[in-house]
Nucleic acid binder design. Structure first.
Length: 129
DNA sequence: ACGCTGACTATTA
DNA sequence: CTAATAGCCAGCG
């Protein structure tokens, strides 16, 4: 797992100085934790919320280390832009992601969130850092 | 240091 | 609709 170093040099430039001392990973975790129960969002939305919308990959990378973060980060509520559970293979076991989503009332069909557009929660709109 | 990889996305053909 | 391309940037061999 990522050592969670503070290498968010560019992030510092985007985020107003003094407001956030958190690292890129922590910012991702922070946003992800605020996803309402039964709702989902996308990597790009989180990235856009942080100001680094062109670096959606880093969001996924950050969530890769979410297992070692307390409190738990509901990474299962984060999917790609079309509602596809691309990150399910990173759960233990694979299928845990779908199980958790079903537990929250989210239906998953063929590794894809049903009614993704309705369940979509946009942090850039609802959160607005 | 260099190049490749990746839980992504937007654009273009 | 699909396919290819380019941008992004931290890790790793």
């Amino acid at each position: 797992m990522p050592p969670l170093k503070k290498t968010n040099t560019k992030l510092k430039a985007v985020v107003p100085s003094g407001k956030r001392d958190e690292t890129f990973f922590e910012l991702v975790y922070d946003v992800t934790r605020q996803i309402p129960r039964g709702r989902v969002t996308s990597y790009g939305a989180i990235a856009a919320c942080l100001g680094t919308k062109l670096s959606a990959r880093m969001v996924g990378w950050a969530l890769n280390g979410s297992s070692s973060v307390r409190p738990r980060v509901p990474a299962h509520r984060v999917v790609n832009r079309i509602g596809l559970l691309t990150g399910k293979h990173h759960f233990t076991p694979p299928g845990q992601m779908k199980k958790l989503l079903n537990k929250e009332g989210i239906k998953v069909r063929n590794d894809q969130v049903v009614d993704f557009e309705k369940l979509f929660w946009d942090p850039v709109k609802e959160l607005e850092i």
